[in-house]
Simulated assay, not measured.
Amino acid sequence: MPQDKFDFRFRGGRLCLDFAATLGGRYREPVERLAVPADLGRWFRLALSLPADLPAQPRGLDDARALREAVHRLVHPATRAKPARSDVELLNSWAVHPDFAPELSPDARSVTLRSARTVEAGLATVARDAIDLLTGPWLERVRECAFSDCSLMFVDTSRPGQRQWCDMKACGNRHKVRQYRKAHAR
Rank of each mutant, 00 (worst) to 15 (best):
R68A: 04
A64C: 01
D63P: 01
K169G: 11
A101N: 12
D107E: 15
L15D: 03
V31S: 03
M168Q: 11
C16V: 08
K82M: 14
D87W: 00
Y27Q: 14
C145M: 09
C166E: 05
P55G: 06
H72Q: 09
A35C: 09
A84W: 12
M1P: 14
Q164L: 15
R26Q: 12
A121F: 05
E120F: 06
P37R: 02
C145I: 07
P51W: 06
S158R: 06
S110P: 01
H97N: 14
T22I: 00
A70F: 04
S105G: 10
E32H: 13
Y180P: 04
R80E: 06
D4L: 13
L123Y: 01
L17W: 00
D87H: 01
G172V: 07
A56F: 07
Q162E: 12
Q179A: 13
H76W: 10
C171T: 01
V119S: 01
W138A: 12
P83C: 09
R85F: 14
L17K: 03
P77C: 13
A185P: 05
Q164F: 11
P2W: 09
R11E: 15
A146G: 13
R163C: 08
L113K: 08
V126C: 01
A170C: 12
L17R: 03
A38H: 11
D4M: 08
L46K: 12
G25S: 10
L74A: 00
Y180E: 04
G12K: 06
A124W: 06
L74P: 01
A38P: 06
L74Y: 05
T112L: 11
Y27H: 14
S151I: 08
A81P: 08
D149G: 13
F100W: 08
P2Y: 08
R65Q: 12
F6Q: 15
A56P: 04
P2K: 08
L34H: 03
T118L: 14
